[in-house]
Design a protein around this nucleic acid. Structure first.
Length: 494
RNA sequence: GGGAUCAUAGUCUAGUUUGGUAUGAUGCCAGCCUCGGGCGCUGGAGGUCGUCGGUUCAAAUCCGGCUGAUCCCA
């Protein structure tokens, strides 16, 4: 818990009217993060870090269940290493921060502040891998990455340094690497959709948008309330692109030397940004229960005469809920009225509030309030934990449905470029259309409309339901008009 | 890359046209009051008016440079 909670009034911007002002206000006023002078960097405050911690705890367990082990990597990468995979280097170079000196003396070789760790980690893989018995090698790292974002920054969405996790694996053959890519992608998808209640579209990235150095990139694309796309997770098949330059070889069962097949994958604190944007309302944050630092806030409602009694009951209630595994906080501060506290904790997105006062104690009931729709109910003590469980599930489900309805509304099939342009002028959203596969068309569309290919869905099942995407409808490339060989989603993106 | 607007207490802000050492709110501190949807009262602390320079007896105010922020256009 943050020791100091601002007494200032709540969110004054409306999500609908001024989305980006609303977003910054949420971050500052709920105590998630703060800003310092260095542009593009943010300070994560305890409330924000607690959310990240919960994301981390959940995923870390899943990674371990699927056989991955954590490690730690230095944050500096010698230029020569980063340079080894040429495409990779070129792709990242514009946004790499370089360390060039120690004290007053210049370093003999520049060191990069890691934009990602492939090069560094893979330079040491040959020491660890010599036999098929050493494979698969499956590692994960919870750390930060640095990518210079000068032009436009947005807390949690685009920062020069961000918290993330990067997974790296090496396998005996292509098939095993391909399976790993998908295992992770669907692990992410389950987490983002079922736990964070954010619908996603899964598929491939185009060559232009894929991870530099990957054979292909799979991704989960979400839609924000302004209709823009936000990439929520990626899982890359690196093929042999790194094992060859880094000489990562092993002896297979037939005593033949072979290169390993590799994958890498990651999610970042962008997910926090997505939770804020997708679920938040004019009153503030709405946190899905599993990532809520405080799941239940108890507000004792008392007068001078019964203060002691009510607080005692509130604390006893807290103890019993904590023993059931909930994260609970009793707001006993005297300097605020109950009404103030309601607003404060709603702003902070606590999913369930319990009010307890004299009359509740007498009737052995409490008032339970759900954050998203602020529905109140009077619940007898003996039903309380059951009721809370029910609210958590409903809330999680309703948040998802709301977001999914929006995604469906803002996803259209468009096959004519004039309509396409007109649509992107007046509104943002996902446009499902045909593409011939040429990078040239993709670039031209971007130049003309600001939208690019966010994702190439694996299958029509990956698209929102109710769209007509048969070959009769989507025949041609949206730009050149030649035969389309892919159905893709164009959108403006963060 | 081009343009516009702005910079005053932790935050928001009045004052700038017409030069005279800064207004109000909120937050903060102390005390009282009590809390079922952002209570109220009393007192107090908090400012080199973004920065550097110029004009002037005198600059938040007029002029110029710089820095930073926001928005619009490419």
């Amino acid at each position: 818990m943050d020791q100091k909670i601002s007494k200032e009034f709540g969110i004054s911007a409306k999500k609908e009217d001024n989305f980006s002002e609303w977003y910054s206000q949420i971050i500052e006023k709920t105590g998630l993060a703060d800003f310092i002078s260095a542009k593009g960097f943010i300070v994560l405050r305890p409330y924000g870090f607690a959310i990240w911690d919960l994301i981390k705890n959940y995923l870390d367990q899943k990674f371990k269940e699927t056989g991955h082990l954590n490690g730690f990597l230095p944050c500096l990468i010698p230029e020569s290493l980063l340079n080894k995979e040429e495409k990779h280097f070129k792709g990242f170079n514009p946004e790499v921060f370089w360390v060039t000196s120690s004290g007053d003396s210049l370093l003999s070789e520049k060191l990069a502040l890691r934009p990602t760790s492939e090069a560094l980690l893979y330079s040491i893989f040959p020491k660890w891998i010599s036999s098929y018995r050493d494979l698969p090698l499956k590692m994960n790292f919870w750390n930060t990455a640095l990518r210079a974002e000068i032009k436009s920054t947005k807390p949690f969405i685009r920062n020069s340094e961000f918290l993330w996790q990067e997974g790296h694996t090496a396998h005996v053959d292509k098939k095993e690497a391909e399976d790993e890519v998908m295992t992770i992608l669907y692990l992410y998808k389950h987490f983002i959709e079922k736990i964070l209640s954010i619908p996603t579209i899964s598929g491939y990235k185009s060559n232009k948008e894929k991870f530099v150095g990957a054979d292909y990139t799979t991704a989960l694309e979400g839609m924000m309330p302004d209709g823009k796309a936000l990439q929520l997770g990626t899982s890359h098949n690196l093929g042999l692109n790194f094992s060859q330059p880094f000489d990562i070889k092993f002896l297979n069962k037939n005593n033949i030397e072979d290169f390993v097949w590799q994958t890498s994958w990651g999610i970042s604190w962008r997910l926090i940004g997505a939770i804020i944007m997708v679920h938040g309302d004019d009153k503030g944050l709405i946190l899905p229960p599993i990532v809520a630092p405080i799941q239940i806030i108890i507000i004792p409602v008392y007068k001078n005469v019964n203060e002691q009694l009510v607080k005692e009951h509130a604390n006893r209630l807290k103890d019993s809920l904590v023993s059931l595994g909930y994260r609970v906080f009793v707001d006993q501060r005297d300097e605020f009225t109950a009404g103030w506290k309601y607003n404060e904790w709603e702003m902070k997105g606590v999913p369930v509030r319990i009010n307890i006062g004299q009359r509740d104690i007498e009737s052995n009931k409490v008032e339970v309030v759900r954050r998203d729709n602020r529905q109140k109910s009077i619940v007898p003590m003996e039903n309380l934990s059951k009721e809370i469980e029910k609210i958590f599930q409903r809330l999680q489900y309703d948040l998802y449905c709301k977001a999914e309805t929006y995604l469906k509304e803002k996803t259209k099939v468009i096959t004519n470029f004039d309509d396409f342009k007109r649509n992107l002028d007046s509104y943002s959203g996902f446009i499902v259309t045909g593409w011939c596969g040429s990078e040239d068309c993709e670039v031209r569309v971007k130049e003309n409309t600001g939208a690019d290919i966010r994702v190439i869905p694996f299958d029509s099942k990956d698209l929102p339901t109710g769209l007509n995407t048969t070959h009769d409808v989507i025949k041609d490339c949206i730009y050149c008009g030649k035969k389309a060989n892919k159905i893709v989603i164009f959108a403006k993106a963060y």
